[in-house]
C-alpha cells in the first residue's frame, strides 16, 4: 500500500524540463533538487526532521550553482 511517488516525480521532471535553462546544467540542478525535496518530504512524513532547513539548503544549493555559473559563460 506504500505511496507510489513515481507519477509525482515524473511530472516534476516534466515541469523542470520546461523551465528556462538560465545557465548550462541548471535544469539538471533543478531536477535533482525537486527529487531531493520529495524524498525529504516523504521521509519527514514518517519520521519528523527539520525539513524547512533542509529544503532551504537545497534551494541555496541551486542558487549557488546559478550564481557561480552566471556571467562565466559556462
Amino acid at each position: 500500500m506504500a505511496y507510489k511517488d513515481e507519477r509525482v516525480i515524473s511530472i516534476l521532471m516534466e515541469q523542470a524540463e520546461a523551465t528556462e535553462e538560465r545557465v548550462l546544467g541548471y535544469r539538471d540542478e533543478l531536477k535533482h533538487a525537486v527529487a531531493d525535496i520529495i524524498a525529504l518530504e516523504r521521509q519527514n512524513k514518517f519520521a519528523k526532521t527539520n525539513i524547512a532547513v533542509k529544503v532551504g539548503d537545497i534551494v541555496s544549493r541551486v542558487g549557488t550553482y546559478l550564481n557561480k555559473h552566471t556571467g562565466t559563460g559556462s
Binding site: Q15, A16, E29, L30, V34, V59, V62, G63, L66, N67
Partner: peptide
Amino acid sequence: FAAELSAAGDLRKIV
C-alpha cells in the same frame, strides 16, 4: 541572493 531567489522561484513554479 538574487541567484538563490531565482532558484527558489523556479522550484516554486515547478511544484
